[in-house]
């Protein structure tokens, strides 16, 4: 995106994004695939990226923004270094995922899904990650923790804090 060196260097991420836009330019219904790949490149979808996509695909920024905010997978905020995805699907809920959620919020000092002030953790409740057999389940950066009880939470978080 923007940098302070003028126009002599090229941001590799921006380059990659341009490639993605080129690839999909002539595909019908390309916006969502492009947003997916853009999010993969940047980790989230800041306004500047949305603008670039709008220009590249020749749709209005309003439409892009409307799509980004409609789908929960797209995020306009950066996530924490460790993204905690807690399953609140039915199978997990009946096995007490609600209590796990309460405990996570308590331990992280959040009152709902969001990112901690230090940017270390973000909490995201999701619906079924397909490990219902291990319910209740959460995933931290892809690592699965199953059969949770609320008292497991402090120890698990500490592990990540210690790694800092």
């Amino acid at each position: 995106m923007s940098c302070s060196c003028g126009s002599t260097c090229v941001d590799p991420k921006a380059q990659e994004l341009q490639k993605v836009i080129e690839k999909y330019k002539n595909t019908k219904g390309a916006v969502i695939p492009v947003l997916h790949e853009a999010q993969e490149i940047y980790g989230y979808l800041p306004l500047q990226v949305q603008k670039t996509i709008a220009e590249g695909l020749d749709v209005s920024l309003a439409e892009i923004y409307g799509i980004v905010t409609f789908y929960t997978q797209f995020s306009i905020y950066p996530k924490g270094k460790y993204n905690i995805q807690l399953c609140l699907g039915t199978a997990c809920y009946v096995k007490g995922a609600g209590q796990i959620y309460d405990r996570l919020k308590q331990e992280l000092g959040l009152d709902k899904d969001g990112t901690t002030k230090d940017g270390l953790f973000s909490l995201e409740s999701c619906r079924c990650i397909g490990a219902c057999g291990l319910a209740p389940v959460m995933m931290i950066n892809g690592e699965v923790y199953g059969r949770l009880v609320p008292d497991d939470i402090p120890g698990i978080l500490q592990k990540y804090r210690d790694a800092e």
């Binding site: 969502i32 947003l35 997916h36 789908y71 929960t72 997978q73 619906r127």
Partner: peptide, 8 residues
């Protein structure tokens, strides 16, 4: 293939 993006 088209990917969804988390909307029930």
């Amino acid at each position: 293939i088209r990917l969804g993006a988390g909307a029930f």
